[in-house]
Design a protein around this nucleic acid. Structure first.
Length: 438
DNA sequence: TCTGGGGTCCTAGGACCC
DNA sequence: TCTGGGGTCCTAGGACCC
């Protein structure tokens, strides 16, 4: 319990009594849509949506699209009528573009303060504690303007004493012209928290919303004023942390150093339903190649691989089938060949003939540093395999993914996902540079 | 006809041990 | 025939996030 102090019936970080923090949450507005707009001025004022993988769901909406009543996460086919009627511009997601623009935004933020936590592709927490209470909102505005000028991406910024409150502030900032809201220096936050629906509080999801509402808690103020004992007893520590944070007591620290991940998932829905074992085998093999390349690039090894397959949960008339199986490796590995071999061997076990498979995936678990993986059985053979993997990775990096692959991953890939509305912009690909003719 | 993908953390319950 | 209690570790499943 070093670095912690017992306060309000809870172990809290020592930092709480040392000084009060000022945390900013910077959130890119309709991030994927903003990325597409950057390279396509014609859609600046139009309603725009970006679809998830396989063109399945709507995952990003412009303000105009939101105003039309298109909902977040809604299946594309259900929104199609509104989309056609209102000439909504539709894009398949283009993750290499979004990833690249995200890095530009984060680099810009680091110019203001290197103490940032990159929380997701479009969000970062920043520590602005070294600015005074009255300065902080103006600093937020400067950050916002700079990001807009340097990257073209509009953001909203919320500033408060805790992460959960800065989420609240950000929620308010989203609706403001200036795009910046600071709750620093406000004595009584109750009138503000009262207007925040309980399901809009960070950390309160669908299940907890139902539970809270059943107990008469409909907004953030009511949760804040509920006793911690009751919350902890009827839920768990995470919920009581949320309540503490609403009270202005920081319980969730800024994570400045990005920690190594513990698992790596590659999974996809298929462009069409699959019934043949061989096609499933190809898909699982290529997901394995993908995942093992990813962990090699982060210098990790996996203790086990899990394989899963399933049919569509929405088409009950065919009967739902879902199954998974895990294999442990005798020695942690990142060798593609070994990972594929093991994954395919358990795929045989969970495959049932006669199903229309909709999705499959692999998960590498128990990831640890490759350096610490030396053991009694390491041999010259391992070194040869490592060299082979390195040269495959280098080739694929230079000439494009899956230039070098395994035969088991298939060549035709008839199962691969749909991307009918790709904008074909790739800021990380030389061949996508626009050409100018003289 | 068509419904995403990739993470983390917590908890309950079982296996196992003494 | 009667069959303890407490600890640890692991896993699966659920809840949350974006």
């Amino acid at each position: 319990m070093k670095n912690k102090i017992f306060l309000f019936g809870e172990w809290l970080p020592m930092s709480y009594i040392q000084y009060t923090k000022k945390l900013a949450l910077v959130d890119c507005n309709s991030f994927y849509v903003s990325c597409e707009r950057l390279f396509n001025p014609k859609i600046r004022k139009k309603p725009v949506v970006v679809l998830s993988n396989n063109d399945g769901c709507i995952v990003s909406r412009s303000t105009e699209a939101k105003a039309l009543g298109i909902k977040m996460g809604e299946p594309y086919f259900k929104a199609k009528d509104i989309i056609i009627k209102n000439d909504v511009q539709v894009f398949s997601s283009n993750y290499s573009l979004y990833g690249d623009l995200s890095r530009r935004v984060m680099r810009t933020l680091k110019r203001f303060n290197s103490d940032i936590e990159v929380y997701s592709i479009d969000e970062a927490f920043m520590d602005l504690s070294n600015f005074s209470d009255n300065e902080v909102e103006q600093v937020g505005r400067e950050i916002r303007e700079t990001v807009l000028k340097w990257t073209g991406i509009p953001t909203s910024i919320g500033i408060a004493k805790t992460k959960t409150l800065s989420k609240v502030a950000n929620h308010i900032a989203k609706k403001k012209q200036s795009g910046v809201t600071s709750l620093i220096g406000i004595e009584n936050l109750d009138p503000i928290l009262e207007k925040i629906d309980i399901n809009d509080v960070w950390g309160v999801g669908r299940q907890m919303t139902k539970f809270y509402q059943k107990n008469g808690i409909y907004n953030a103020k009511q949760l804040k004023n509920k006793s911690n004992t009751w919350i902890k007893k009827s839920s768990n520590v995470l919920s009581s942390r949320t309540a503490m944070e609403l009270r202005g007591v920081p319980c969730i620290d800024l994570e400045k150093t990005e920690s190594k991940r513990k698992s790596c998932v590659v999974s996809r829905s298929f462009g069409k339903r699959i019934e043949k074992f061989q096609e499933l085998e190809e898909a699982v093999a290529s997901y394995c190649l993908n995942a093992s390349e990813k962990i090699r690039s982060e210098n990790l090894v996996a203790k086990a691989v899990m394989v899963f397959v399933r049919t569509s949960p929405f088409q009950k008339q065919f009967g739902f089938y879902s199954n998974s199986r895990t294999v442990d490796f005798p020695i942690a590995t990142n060798n593609s060949i070994e990972i594929v071999k093991n994954a395919l061997s358990v795929l045989k076990v969970i495959f049932r003939k006669g199903h229309r498979y909709q999705k499959a995936g692999v998960m590498l678990t128990g990831l640890t540093d490759a350096e610490n993986n030396e053991n009694l059985f390491s041999s010259a053979k391992d070194e040869r395999i490592n060299r082979l993997m390195r040269s495959i990775d280098n080739t694929n990096y230079r000439y494009g993914r899956s230039t070098l692959s395994l035969a088991s991953a298939g060549v035709r890939k008839s199962w691969s996902m749909k991307r009918d509305y790709n904008s074909k912009i790739d800021t990380a690909d030389f061949y996508c540079l626009p050409t100018i003719r003289a």
